[in-house]
Design a protein around this nucleic acid. Structure first.
Length: 557
RNA sequence: GCGUCUGUAGCUCAGCUGGAUAGAGCGCCGGACUACGAAUCCGUAGGUCGGGGGUUCGAAUCCCUCCAGACGCGCCA
């Protein structure tokens, strides 16, 4: 079976329905779409479908009757075990023990490929995330975006698609100029000269670090310039490179690697920004308003039209961003995915509108909003104030709680939820900390294998007897192992990595329960080997899942 | 005023393309190690799913409305 059990079951039920109709046992008609669900309770089967219930109006029989008819078709398939039709009309389906047990071998042979698939026609994704301004260190919202974006990329790749991770560097415009001025002032200060700090300049201490770095490495180049504005421009370039370098290394330390760092400046220099204006103009989406060029974004359900060129001829940020996204379009991706912070949600309509205007495809660009992060310590919110130059950076956070805990905490909640990040909890190396719970399950399995080795036990991963698996704890574990590829598929299609985190908690829980109830290493060699196989398969799934989240699976802790 | 997100157990949150008796972790209380890691496991208590309407066989889930919180509403980037 190549597809997931759930998808396979969808076909089974769909085919069964078609056959029943073909055989005249059910009437022709407009049937609802078949749904395969996970029942709340294990006593309602491994999978369940409400199709008999939902097609009551078409069939004009009681759902139980319809269910019984369908049951006779469904249970013919090999991997299907018991099929039950119960009270309101649900059809509950159990997977056969033979199939379930057979999975262990699949997992062990697939290894790190288990839960991934290969597509004949993969989609090419461009995934843009973080894209923090190059004016300083990244904050914790960027960290959340980094964790989410990277894991979504991993999920899409596991799902057989092609992903390019991209970081957009806004190295153009006012803020960069202001950065240059701020550094300029700090250099004067460090050199003991008079200086005027720019009114809205960047206050952070890191500006002094940059100034010192310039003094140590590039001061002669700067002093060689006679013009003040020219110096500031050059300092801005240096400062941007310094900051981008810092961002790059912070992200690397966070286990996040980008394929491309795209510079906004290039778009202005090579004329792409103005070219895209013409393109929009030709399509009839630009009009003139007192010398300003305005994009008719209200055609795409924006509240108001947006200025793209000021009356002095300078393009706005939006126009550059449109040019950037048009560049992505030209690079030939099937899907463009952006992850933004919550402060940009008002920007979605205009940019999506522009991409739609340029491509005629209103689904090409998908923008995901990662909600805000509140750092919590001792039950109280930790204030982050960039204005005061006193803020918790991504670097601080990683240094404080470690990569594994940080990545897990950012991912364990849905990105729509406003996350309370409990720093104390994340730091705690104990059972209260969910990331350690998962890692412990993995380490525990590794430890059992070490123990087996110590006892000179020869482990054969091929050989197990499925009779040993006929108990609740084993079957629960087997079912979770079976579901893993379905969870990956679901999480990838919906861009929801937190589902993997939730899933991993459950499988870890089932493993610990299995471990408590059943002695893995015993005098019974066959039994020991069978249980080792099951533990090994569990370990594989834990490791694969943790890897998707960018969290390590340690062999000991 | 408009928009986005959120409101589910004491806390942090799953569940939301409508399905069966509303879940998890932590916390609380009570149990379980002469054996593979007790960084674990088992059990008890704890909920008008923010309020109110509606849609239907069926609603935490969909629609309307109200309340509360966070964040946005630039010719900044």
């Amino acid at each position: 079976m190549k597809d997931t059990v759930k998808n396979e079951l969808y076909r089974v039920v769909t085919d069964s329905l078609a056959c029943a109709i073909g055989d005249g046992k059910l009437p022709q008609g407009d049937y609802p779409e078949v749904k395969i669900e996970y029942p709340r309770d294990a006593k309602f089967g491994d999978y369940s479908t409400p199709i008999a219930l939902e097609s009551a109006k078409v069939v004009k029989k009681s759902p139980i009757e319809t269910g019984d008819i369908l049951k006779s078709y469904i249970e013919k398939y090999d991997f299907v075990g018991e099929v039950e039709v119960v009270k309101p009309g649900f059809i509950n389906i159990y997977v056969s023990h033979e199939y379930l047990s057979g999975l262990v071998k699949d997992v062990l042979y697939s290894g790190d490929k288990y839960g991934t698939r290969v597509k004949d026609n993969p989609l090419k994704f461009n995934l843009e995330f973080v894209s923090a301004n190059p004016t300083g260190p990244m904050n914790v919202v960027s960290a959340r975006a980094a964790a989410l974006g990277d894991s979504i990329g991993n999920l899409l790749q596991a799902n057989g698609d092609i992903v390019e991770r991209e970081f957009y560097v806004n190295d153009y415009g006012n803020q960069v100029n202001l950065l240059g001025r701020s550094v300029h002032a700090r250099i004067s200060e460090l050199q003991g000269r008079d200086f005027d700090f720019p009114e809205d300049g960047y206050q952070g201490e890191y500006i002094r670090d940059i100034a010192q770095w310039v003094i140590d490495n590039h001061i002669s180049d700067i002093e060689a310039l006679s013009d003040e504005e020219e110096k500031i421009r050059e300092l801005a370039v240096l400062a941007v490179n310094y900051n981008v370098g810092g961002q790059k290394s912070d992200l690397q330390d966070f286990n996040v690697e980008f394929d491309r760092w795209f510079r906004e400046k290039g778009l202005h220099e090579n004329g792409d920004v103005m070219k895209v204006l013409n393109k929009l103009d030709e399509a009839g989406y630009i009009y003139d308003d007192n010398g300003k060029k305005v994009f008719r974004s209200t055609d795409f359900s924006d509240d108001k039209d947006r200025v793209v060129v000021r009356d002095d001829g300078r393009p706005t940020y939006l126009l550059a961003d449109i040019a950037y996204h048009y560049d992505k379009v030209k690079r030939g991706y099937d899907r463009l995915i952006n992850i933004w912070g919550p402060d940009h949600h008002g920007y979605i309509a205009r940019l999506q509108g522009a991409v739609c205007a340029l491509t005629g495809d209103d689904r090409r660009l998908r923008i995901l909003i990662a909600q805000q992060v509140n750092l919590v310590m001792d039950g109280e919110a930790v204030k982050m104030s960039k204005r005061l130059g006193r803020f918790s950076t991504m670097r601080d956070l990683i240094d404080e709680v470690g990569v594994d805990a940080a990545r897990y905490f950012f991912i364990m909640r849905s990105m729509d939820s406003h996350l309370d990040f409990d720093i104390e909890l994340a730091k705690r190396h104990s059972s209260e900390n969910p990331v350690f719970y998962l890692q412990y399950a993995h380490a525990r399995i590794c430890s059992i294998f070490k123990e087996a080795e110590k006892r000179n036990f020869i482990y054969e991963k091929d050989s197990y007897d499925l009779e040993y698996f006929r108990n609740e704890e084993c079957r629960n574990l087997l079912k979770m192992i079976m579901k893993y590829p379905e969870e990956v598929l679901d999480a990838a299609e919906n861009f929801e990595p937190h589902k993997i985190a939730t899933y991993l908690m459950r499988i870890a829980q089932f493993f610990h329960r299995f471990y408590t109830e059943h002695r893995i290493l015993s005098d019974d060699t066959d039994k020991s080997n069978s249980y080792l196989c099951l533990a090994d398969a569990t370990r594989t799934v834990l490791k694969n899942g943790l890897t998707l989240l960018g969290v390590r699976a340690p062999e000991s802790m």
